[in-house]
Design a protein around this nucleic acid. Structure first.
Lengths: 345, 345
DNA sequence: CTGAAAGCGCTTACAG
DNA sequence: CTGAAAGCGCTTACAG
C-alpha cells in the first residue's frame, strides 16, 4: 500500500487531470525555469495540484534526490529546562526553513548511549546539530560523518567541526570576585561527578581562586545532576557540618536544590550565599533570586544555523568557531544586604 | 547520489559478498522464516552484513512497505516543563520500540498553527500522539486521518479518538476545601485568557465554590501563560488592591510568578495563600513549597502507548478512554502554620 | 513541450 | 534456494 493513506494524490494523478505529461507536471510544480514550459501550463498544473490537494511524498523525494529535508537535533536530555531552550529555538528555525526536525536525546552517558549513536548515524538526514554532547561529536568525527553532511556543535569549541560556544571565564571570575568583595572565603563547590571528572573550567577557576586566597577547596559531589540529588546531598552535609559562607554551584539545576536545602536546614540565604549557572528562567522566581550566569541562547542558535548553511557549500573546508560572552547576573541569593552590589557587567 | 553518504552499503552489496541472491539476503536479514533458507546461509548473510556495517535505508524501506517507522509526537510547546515531561516519556518509549519520534510543537493558537497542521498531515508517519491540542485533534478527525493511522490523544477525553486523561475534579475540590478549612473565602482565580475562554473545569468549579460560600468571584487574567506575565499582572494588582486570602492559580507556571509577586509586594506566603496545578518539579523548590495537583504522567504515557498498539489492529473500531486520577499535594504555600493540614488523599 | 526510461534502495510475488 | 521483475513515488537525463 502507498505510504500516507490509501488515496493519496500522486504527481501522475495531477498530470493526468491536467492532460500533460508527468515530466511537465513535475517541472511546473518544482519551478524548474530551466525547462521551457509556457506560463499558462505551469499555472494550470499548480492550480490542479492545489485543487486535488497534492503534496509530494517526502520519502519518495528523499530517496530520489538524496535530500531528506530532515535535520537531526541532538541534546543530552529532552526534559531539561536548559537544553529545551535550544530545542525550542531550533524547532522554530527548522520550521521556517521548511525542514523536519528530528529531535533526539542522546542519553549522554547512559547505557543506551552507544546504541543510540549507532542508530543516529544510519538515520538519513541532511545535517546534524549537536548540543553539549562531546562524546557524540567525537563519534561522528571519527566516522567522518562531518565530511558527508554539515555538522555543527553548540556548547564548546570542538576540533574539526564548526562550533558555537559562550565564553564563561569573565563571568566565573565575577562570581568569585563577588564572593571576595563580601569577604566570603569559605566556599564550597557543588557539582555532580561528571563535572569533576572532565577538566572543568568552573572547577579549575574555583581551585585557582581558593589557592589564591589561601583557603582549602571543598567539593561536594552530588550523585546525579538533578535538583533533588543536590538537595539531599546538601541536607546531609549541613546535618554534619557548619554551613560555609558560600556554595558555588556548577549550575542552576543544582543551585535550586542547594538553596532549598540551606533554607530547610534552618539557615538563611544569602547569609549562606548560593550561586548558580545557566540563567534558567526559574532562578528568577526563587526566593531569594538566584545569582547566575546567562548566555545569549538565541544568538548562539542562529549562529549555529548560519554555520550550517555556510557549511553545505564546502564540506571539506576548515572548521569555524563563533564565540559569545556569558554574563554574570547578581541575584539576592548572594547579595549581603549591607553591601553595595558589584556587577562587572 | 544515494542518501546517507557516498559509500553506503546496500543489500545487494551484502548479497554479492556472500554469493547469494538479493532475495536470499533480504529474507535472511529480515528473519523471514516463512521462506525456506538453510540456517547456515542465514548466518553467513547476517555475519557479512554486520561485518560490512550494513543498515537498511529506512527511507527505501518506508517507500516500499508503507511503514515509515516514524511516530509523530505533538505538543503545544516544546520548551515547557509541563509538556516536556510527556516528551521525555515518549522519547524513551519510541526508542525502545525502535521507532523514530518526530517531536513537533504545534504552536497551538499561534499564527503558524494552520500551516503547521497542513504540513503535519502530509508528513508520512505511522501514528500520532497528540498532547493537549484539541484544535489539532479536531483537524485530524475532520480529515479522517484517524481512520488511516492510529491517533491517540492525551490530556482530555476527545470524541472519536482514543484518549487518555486524568480526572481533576476531586483534586480541585480538595484545594477549595482546604481554603475553606483555613477560613479563606476571599479567593482570586488567576489564569490566562485561554483558560477562561474555553469551558474550563478549574474555573467552573471555582465559580461554583464562590457561589456556594456566597462570595463574589474575582478573576485575574494574565495576558500570556507564563510566569513572567503572571508576575507582572499580580504586581500591578497588588499595587492597587489589598491582597486576597488566596490566589487559586490555573497552573504551576502561573503560580510560580504569582508567589514571587506576592512576596516582592511585601506580603507573606502563606498568609496570602497560593495554589498551583500540574506538579512541576520546580514547585517543590519554591520557598514555601507550592501546593499543587499532580498527575500520573508515566502511567498516562504508557496507557497512551498501549492504546496506540491496540489501535493498529482495528482502525475503525470504537474509541477508548483511559482515565486516571490526579491528586492534591499540599505545600507550605497554602498551609496556615496554626492549622493542622487536612489532606484528602 | 511529450514519452519512454532509468534510478534511488528496498520488499515481495513468481516461475524455476 | 536463484533470478528476473515489478512496485513504492518521486526526479532527471534523453531523444523526439
Amino acid at each position: 500500500m502507498a505510504t500516507g493513506g490509501s488515496k493519496r494524490v500522486r504527481v501522475i494523478d495531477v498530470a493526468n487531470a491536467v492532460g500533460v505529461s508527468k515530466a511537465t507536471a513535475v517541472f511546473s510544480l518544482n519551478d524548474r525555469y530551466d525547462i521551457v514550459i509556457s506560463e499558462p501550463t505551469r499555472q494550470r498544473v499548480k492550480n490542479m495540484a492545489a485543487k486535488m490537494g497534492y503534496k509530494p511524498n517526502p520519502l519518495a523525494q528523499a530517496l530520489s534526490t538524496g535530500k531528506t529535508g530532515m535535520i537531526n537535533i541532538v541534546v543530552p536530555y529532552i526534559n531539561d529546562p536548559f537544553f529545551s531552550r535550544f530545542l525550542a529555538h531550533f524547532q522554530q528555525i527548522a520550521f521556517d526553513a521548511h525542514l523536519t526536525p528530528i529531535v533526539t536525546a542522546n542519553f549522554n552517558e547512559d547505557e543506551n548511549a552507544d546504541e543510540f549513536m549507532e542508530r543516529l548515524i544510519h538515520w538519513p538526514c541532511d545535517a546534524y546539530i549537536l548540543c553539549y554532547s562531546k562524546k557524540l561529536a567525537a563519534f561522528l568525527t571519527e566516522r567522518k560523518i562531518h565530511l558527508e553532511k554539515p555538522v555543527v556543535y553548540i556548547g564548546e569549541k570542538v576540533d574539526g567541526i564548526d562550533s558555537v560556544y559562550s565564553d564563561h571565564q569573565a563571568a566565573i571570575a565575577a562570581i568569585l570576585n563577588h564572593f571576595s568583595e563580601d569577604r566570603r572565603t569559605d566556599i564550597v563547590f557543588v557539582s555532580d561527578e561528571k563535572a569533576l571528572h572532565y577538566i572543568n573550567e568552573r572547577y579549575r577557576l574555583y581551585l585557582d581562586h581558593m589557592k589564591r586566597i589561601g583557603r582549602k577547596p571543598v567539593e561536594l559531589v552530588v550523585p546525579e545532576r538533578s535538583r533533588g540529588a543536590a538537595y539531599s546531598t546538601v541536607r546531609e552535609h549541613l546535618a554534619a557540618h557548619k554551613p560555609p559562607q558560600a556554595f558555588f554551584c556548577y549550575n542552576d539545576e543544582l543551585a535550586i536544590g542547594v538553596q532549598r536545602a540551606v533554607q530547610d536546614s534552618g539557615y538563611n540565604v544569602p547569609d549562606v550565599a548560593v550561586s548558580g549557572f545557566d540563567g534558567l528562567p526559574e532562578g528568577d522566581y526563587m526566593n531569594p533570586r538566584l545569582t547566575t550566569v546567562v548566555y545569549p541562547y538565541d544568538k548562539m542558535c542562529h549562529a549555529a544555523w548560519d554555520l550550517l548553511e555556510a557549511r553545505k557549500e564546502n564540506l571539506a573546508g576548515a572548521s569555524n568557531v563563533v564565540e559569545f560572552q556569558s554574563s554574570f547576573v547578581q541575584g539576592g541569593s548572594t547579595r549581603l544586604p549591607d553591601r553595595v552590589p558589584s556587577l562587572t557587567d
